[in-house]
Simulated scan of single mutants.
Amino acid sequence: MALTFGKCLLRYRRLEAGITQAQLSDRLSRLGLDVSTVMISQYENDHRKMNPVVMRGMCIVLCCQEVDLYEWPR
């Protein structure tokens, strides 16, 4: 059985942290991840799923865990 993703909660986590998409992109670049604001928007609008490396970078920047970035089906 494959792991499925639910709704992306990145926008909520980002706004909770009080940062813009541009600031998130900049902080990810400091970790060596090239994630544009366009890509962040695609994640937030469920047009693209994060790969594990990007997801971990998001967690480091937003001080959360991977489980906090998506609604996981039960």
Rank of each mutant, 00 (worst) to 15 (best):
E66W: 07
D46Q: 09
H47P: 00
I60E: 11
C64Q: 02
H47D: 02
C59V: 02
Y43L: 01
R48T: 05
L62G: 10
E71V: 07
H47M: 03
Q65T: 08
V53S: 09
M58F: 15
E44V: 01
C59T: 03
P73F: 11
L62H: 08
R56M: 13
L69A: 12
M58S: 08
C63D: 13
D68E: 06
I60S: 08
K49S: 02
P52C: 00
L62M: 05
C64I: 01
R56P: 04
V67T: 15
I60W: 03
M50S: 15
L69D: 15
Y43E: 02
N45I: 02
G57L: 13
R56Y: 10
L62E: 04
R48M: 07
L62V: 05
G57M: 09
D46I: 04
E71N: 06
L69N: 15
D68W: 04
L69Y: 15
V54N: 13
C59F: 04
M58K: 08
M55L: 14
V54L: 03
N45W: 00
R74L: 02
E44T: 04
K49L: 00
Y43V: 01
R56D: 10
V54P: 11
P52M: 00
V67E: 15
W72N: 07
C59E: 05
C64S: 01
E71C: 07
M50R: 09
G57N: 13
E44A: 09
D68F: 08
M58W: 12
P73K: 10
Y70L: 03
V53Q: 07
M50A: 15
N45M: 11
N45S: 15
M50Q: 15
R48N: 08
V61G: 13
R56T: 11
K49I: 00
C64H: 01
V61S: 10
R48Y: 06
H47K: 14
V53A: 11
V53I: 12
D46S: 11
Q65H: 10
M55R: 15
V53D: 09
D68A: 05
P73H: 08
R48K: 12
N51E: 07
K49A: 00
R56V: 08
H47E: 03
D68T: 05
D46L: 05
I60K: 12
P73Q: 09
R74A: 03
L62P: 07
L69R: 15
I60Y: 04
W72P: 04
Q65R: 13
V61W: 09
R56Q: 14
I60F: 03
E71W: 05
R48E: 03
N45H: 13
E66I: 06
I60P: 01
C63P: 00
Y43K: 02
L69G: 14
R48C: 05
R48Q: 11
K49M: 00
Y43C: 01
N45P: 03
D68R: 04
P52F: 01
N45L: 14
E66H: 13
Y43Q: 02
V54S: 12
K49P: 04
